[in-house]
Amino acid sequence: MNAPGRAILLASTVVGGLIGQAALADTSDKRIALSNNYAGNSWRQAMLRSWEKVTGQAVADGVVAAADAFTTAENQVTEQAAQIQNLILQGYDAIVINAASPEGLNGAVAEACGAGVVVVSFDGIVTEPCAWRIAVDFKQMGKDEVLYLADQLPEGGNLLEIRGLAGVFVDDEISAGIHEGVAETGKFEIVGSVHGNWAQDVAQKAVAGILPSLPDDIVGVVTQGGDGYGAAQAFNATNRDMPIIVMGNRHDELTWWKEQKDANGYETMSVSIAPGVSTLAFWVAQQILDGAEVPKDLTVPFLRIDQDNLEENLANTEAGGVANVEYTLEDAQAVIAGAK
C-alpha cells in the first residue's frame, strides 16, 4: 500500500473512531431489553440470532451497556405484560417489543412510558401512543404479489390464495392487499382460499385437499410466507401444470425455485420481512436514547427476491433458515430520515 492510501485509511479510521465516540458518550451506560412473545418457528429463531449477533457486537463496542433478550414461554398477553413490568423494575432504559397482541399490552406499555422507559415495538406492534412502532405494510405486500402476477400473466386467470393463521391481523392485512390487487388489476379470480397457518405441512395438507375440486387452469398461487414449498409439493403430487407460486424467502422455497429455474426456466418472486428487523428496532431504540428525534411510526422495508438476484440471496441464506438482512445504525438512520 502506498503512502497516500495509508493516510486516507488512517483518516477514515480516525473519523470512524470519532463517530463511535459520539455514540459512546451518550448511550454507553444505557441498557436495552428485548421482550419477545414467541420463539417457536424458524423466523423467530433467526430474529433472535440476529439480535444476539448485532447487539452483542454493539455491547462489545461500548455503544450500549446491555441488550438482553427475553422470550415468554406461552405466547400469552398476560405473561408478556408481567414480563414487561419486570423489565421496568430491573431498570432498563428501553424495551424493544415484539408483542403478542396489538392492544393487550397497552397497560404495561403505558406503565413503562410512565417510568421513563423508551418502548419500541416492531413486527407485532402495540397501539399505545407513547410507544414507537416499526410496522410492516402487510397490505402493500399482498398487493405487490398480485401486481407481480399481473405483470407476468397479462392474460390473467384463476388464483389460489393461501392465507395465514385465522384471526391474526397480519393474515387479514395481507389478504386484504391481495384482494385489493385483484380488484384493481381486474383480470384474476380467486377460485379457492385455504388457511396454511404459515406452516409448510399445514399448507401442503390444505392445498392437497382443495386442489381436486378446483378448475384445471390455476395460473398463480398467492401466499403469505412459509407456505410456498408446501403448495409446490401439493401441486407436484397431481398432474397439473405448476402455477406461479409466490414464495416467502424460506430456504426450502428458494432452493425449490432455483431447481425449477435451472430445469425449466420457472419464474416467480419472493417477498417477506427479514427476521433481522429486530436489529433495526434495536438501533432505533438506541437512536431515541441518544436524543435523536424519531417519528412514532416507521415502516420496515420488505426483503424482496427476484429472478435475477435469486442465486445471490440463496447463497446468503442459511440452509433451512430464512433470507435475512441485519440492519446497521446507518440503515436505522435512513429509515428514520425517510419517515420525517
Binding site: G40, N41, S42, Q45, N197, A199, Q200, D201, V202, Q204, Y229, G230, Q233, D252, G320
Partner: peptide, 13 residues
Amino acid sequence: AFSGGAALNMGEE
C-alpha cells in the same frame, strides 16, 4: 420426511 423437513411448529395441530 413427507413435508420436506422438520419444523419447530410441525406438531402443533
